[in-house]
Structures are given as structure tokens and as C-alpha cells.
Amino acid sequence: MKQLISSPHTVFGNSVTRVMLLVIFALVPGYIAYIWFFGWGLLINSVLCIATALACEAWMLHLRNKPLQPFLTDGTALVTALLIALALPPVLPWWLPVLATAFAIIIAKHLYGGIGYNPFNPAMVGYAMCLIAFPKQMTAWLPAMTEQGHAINFADNLRFNFTGKLPEGTGYDALTQATPLDALGIQLQLGNSVTEIQTGFAQFSQYFGVGWDWISILFLAGGLFLIYKRIITWHIPVAMLGSIGILSAIAWLYDPSSNPDPIFHLLGGASMLGAFFIATDPVSASTTPRGRLIYGAGIGAITYVIRTWGGYPDGVAFGVLLMNMAVPTIDYYTQPRVFGHDKADKP
């Protein structure tokens, strides 16, 4: 066996599991803030997603004659499950998280060859499939916590998930609301101005807006930690947030009454979560430095377009999936200049 050993003989203790655990670690502050502001629904969804992800992963590995070790414990299924849980609304029938996760792991990941071979971001495939198939449930968000506490407590949330029953006197439509981003989009299309909407709708009350801001800022902090630990590079987040920021700033400067300011776009919706945790999924993202800039900027632009003119509450998932398709071409044409070559070799 020894003659087969090839240099180098010593390696740095990096591993896929280490990478995934650091990603999960970086999600924790934003995750806690999310539960703080929107209640226990996220935790229930997370448990459902993780259980489904691990079960599907194990089943698919079995069908594909792959060993459970090290694939089941590599942490990738866990990250996919958590990203789906974070993308889903907090109050949902139990089968939606299960369906989204099963679709992500079975169809988007294993049918393409498992870890390392999926051209599309599995979490976003699962989420987008449910969003298209079940738009009503998938766009009904909860209002943020007020002085009276969460809009729905843990037991009621859990009962709704499994039985569909809400406490006496509470209706589903009364309980849920559109997200601020969604509400703003709908109201703008109805002809209201940004100021009217921001003063007249519950979504923009102090608590609700502040909740989204905090969650986004904590995801931003987690993302900076990942850059510091060299788990991700700065290219994709900077390009994606940059293109959202620039496009929204241009529109806002042109007509502030019908376009929200860039801060609203950057801290609203899934901008931060998407930029640092979703678009940076290495397998489905571009892998060259310049390619990552193009890839990130493309996601930002598509996100902005869908938010502004599209019918969906947010555009990050579609932005990621559409840019996933462009990755092989982007990578091919953005090869870096090789040492000693005059310029990047254009193939």
C-alpha cells in the first residue's frame, strides 16, 4: 500500500464536515433572532426538515449502494434542511416542509449523483417547487412579536401544523400576513406610494420591520464570519448585494414614491441569507473569482427584477436557480490568467 502514497504527505485538517458545521454555526445568531421575532414555527419546521433530509439521504444512499459513512454525516443534508426551514413561512401544514425537503434531497441532489454533482441548489429547488405548487400557504407569513408576545404560541403552532386547527376565534387569514417585501410589492402595484404603504400597513410597524432588520444583520454577521474562516469568498455576496443595492438605488433616486430605498431591499426578504448562505453553495455556484462576481451580480439583478415586476414575494430562489444554469458557461469563459501567461487564455 505504501508505494501508492503520493505527495504531499501531510495535509491541513480540512474536511467537508468541518465546512458544513461552520456554515451551521454561522447560521445560529440569525436563526435565534428569527425564533425570537416569529415564534417557534421555525423550530418545528427545522425538525421536520432535518428528519426528512436524513431519512431521504439514508434511503437514497442505500438505493445507490453508497456507504452511509461518511456521506450521511458530512453535514450537507443538514445544511440543506436548515436552509429550507429558514425559507419556509413559520406556520405551515406539516407535509409542506417534508415535501420540500424530500424533493430537494431525492430529486435535486441524489438523482443528479449526490453531493458534488447537483447542478442546482437543492434547498432552492425544494423551496421553489412548493412555492409554485402551493402559493397560498407558502406566502402567508406571521406578524412579528409585539408586547403581547408571539402571534401564535408553540402548542398552537404545533397543533396547526399537524391538524390544521387554530385556537377558537383565530382565523388563518387573520393570523397570517404577507411579508413586508410582498406587501410593498402588492400595494405598489395597486398604485399606493411607498410612504403611504410604510405608514399605513401593519408590516411596517416598528416591531415587524425591526425584526427583519435584526435577522438580516445577524445573517450578515454570520456571513462575515464565514469569509473570515475562509469557508466562502467575498465575491458572491458582494456582487449579489452590490447589484441589488445599485439597481434599487437607481430606481429609488429616479422615483422615491414608487421605489423603496436600497436599505429596505438589502435588509428585507432573503437578501442577506441568500447572499451569504444560499448563493454561496459551492457545488452549484460558479467556481472562478470573476465567474463568482458575474454569478452573484446575476442573482442580485434577477432578485430585484422579480421583486419589482414579478408576482412572487421574493426572487432569491429563482435568481439562484436561473444563475445555476449559467454556471458551466460562466466558468468556461472566466478562467483566471495562468501564471506566466500574458492574459487569460480565451478557449
Binding site: 495535509v11 480540512n14 474536511s15 465546512v19 475562509r230 467556481t287 472562478t288 483566471p336 495562468v338
Partner: peptide
């Protein structure tokens, strides 16, 4: 103790860390 032993190679996750350290600037 000096070598990390017999680690099962996993599929490439295209993280690009290799490209960041490649002195020939390859991918």
C-alpha cells in the same frame, strides 16, 4: 501522527480553496 491517515476521499464540492492556494493560478 504527522499524516492524516486513510481518509476516504469525498466528491469535490467545488469550494475553490485549491484555486485560492494554487501558485500557478490554475483551477
Amino acid at each position: 501522527q504527522d499524516v492524516t491517515h486513510e481518509q476516504h476521499p469525498m466528491p469535490c464540492i467545488r469550494c475553490g480553496e485549491c484555486a485560492r492556494v494554487c501558485p500557478a493560478q490554475l483551477l
